[in-house]
Amino acid sequence: MLKVEHLTKMFGGLAAVNDVSVDFEAGKINAIIGPNGAGKSTFFNLISGLHQPTSGRILLDGTDVTNMPSDKVARLGVGRTFQTTNLFEQASVLDNLIVGHRLRTKSGLWDVLINSKRLQREEKAARDKAMEALDFVGLTHVAGQFIADITQEERKRVAFALALATDPKIVLLDEPAAGVNPEETQGFAELMRKMVDNGLTVCLIEHKMDMIMSLADKIMVLDHGEKIAEGTPEEVRNNPVVIEAYLGGDEDAAA
């Protein structure tokens, strides 16, 4: 599904990601863990094309996407969420989601001017897609509410829905369960399972170990930009290098 070969990203003289190779299988939940500053978010930024790698290759279903701009990568089926998502606060949830399907539409300025059939068709498709994504994350009941009026957990779900509306094959989730309570965390775990059950590939960065250990099919551990371990939760849990990195590193991250 997603194959990364010897990926390196230098900022100034420092390697934020250093020679990382990994293979994420389709239809699985893949987790990336590691102490703060291990290069996890940079890794996501490289895959989604926001940053260009210094060296290495990224293959998506066999297509080389290494130096592709992020909008093209998104069109090839890589959806993602961010740690914080800025949305239009004074607009409804549904309105914020409609643009998610924009990348599958073609209407331009001229269509707007003459209100073409194509524009009408595409706008309906985008709205339907937004409703579908909203339904998937279980938020149809707040479709008409302003973003400013919904809860933190609902916001996170909206961010999920936005990524889903792009019709992705793989979704990159950056700390999906940060800042929500244990009960809600469970909800997000279920949501990710549901995504995989629906044929998506999930790739997430997370600090909540309980969740990762019970959820992930495969875990990659990054430390100082390097891959120090990879395997099933069981393998990773018992890996001495990982234990060392966590105990010696940022305690906060191991919590």
Binding site: S70, D71, A74, F82
Partner: peptide, 10 residues
């Protein structure tokens, strides 16, 4: 960044 991740050509 969010816009780009939605496939929008900035």
């Amino acid at each position: 960044e969010l816009a780009q991740s939605l496939g929008i050509n900035l």
